[in-house]
Amino acid sequence: MISLIAALAVDRVIGMENAMPWNLPADLAWFKRNTLNKPVIMGRHTWESIGRPLPGRKNIILSSQPGTDDRVTWVKSVDEAIAACGDVPEIMVIGGGRVYEQFLPKAQKLYLTHIDAEVEGDTHFPDYEPDDWESVFSEFHDADAQNSHSYCFEILERR
């Protein structure tokens, strides 16, 4: 099963200049909980913004210009990325925008964090048809001392 995991502000903004323009430790914990011990696929820009392999996960970098870091697996196509994951129950696609666009048609599940923030962004989550998805989990949280904005975790499964 292919799943996408993303944090989205208003207007589906997911990033600005290779960074997330908010401070939500709870979302980072949600991300870790849902990706640990699963292969993660990301684009080169996302890889560069993280700066290191995510521990406890097979890191697969999709790029037309593969790098030389041998701590991760470099691939040039969506099919190659899927094959590099091996026989696993769930593959997690973690961004960025172009990689989400490439995998959305193949995805069966979306793990979304909806952030109540209007922020400037240069990267967006692809538009998706809500009628194609069923919400199977939703959990709202107010902003607090650690988390700069209110947010809602949601899991959607393709109908």
Rank of each mutant, 00 (worst) to 15 (best):
N18R: 08
I60W: 02
V99Q: 01
N18A: 08
Y100V: 00
E120Q: 11
K58R: 13
E129S: 11
T68E: 14
H114V: 13
P105E: 09
I82E: 05
K106P: 05
P130V: 13
V119T: 14
E118K: 13
M16L: 05
F31V: 02
E154L: 14
D79G: 09
L156F: 15
W47H: 14
E101K: 07
G51N: 11
R12K: 15
R52C: 14
T68G: 12
E101P: 02
Y128S: 05
T35L: 00
T68L: 14
S77E: 15
S135C: 06
E17W: 01
I155H: 03
V10Y: 05
E80C: 07
E129I: 08
N34L: 08
F31E: 01
E120L: 11
Q102W: 12
L24K: 01
S138D: 06
V136W: 06
N59F: 06
L104G: 03
L36H: 12
G121Y: 01
D69L: 09
M92C: 15
P21D: 00
D127L: 13
E154W: 07
P25I: 14
E80F: 08
S148Q: 00
I2K: 01
S150T: 06
E101H: 13
R158C: 06
D131L: 07
L62E: 02
F31P: 05
P66H: 06
W30H: 15
V99N: 04
L112S: 01
P25T: 13
P130F: 12
L8T: 12
D70I: 13
V75C: 13
E17M: 02
P126H: 04
P105Q: 11
E157W: 08
V78Y: 13
R71M: 10
S63A: 15
A9G: 06
E154P: 01
A143S: 07
I94L: 10
N147P: 01
V88F: 14
N23Q: 10
S3L: 01
V40A: 13
A143H: 06
P105K: 08
S77H: 14
H45A: 15
E48I: 09
V13W: 04
I5F: 04
P66Y: 09
Y151L: 08
A29S: 04
D11A: 14
D11H: 03
Y100I: 01
L4H: 01
E80K: 08
N37I: 05
I115A: 04
G43R: 02
F137L: 11
H124N: 08
V136F: 08
V88L: 12
E90G: 01
D11W: 03
R71F: 09
V40M: 13
Y128T: 06
A145H: 11
A7G: 02
M92N: 02
N34E: 07
L54C: 03
H45R: 05
H45Q: 10
F103V: 06
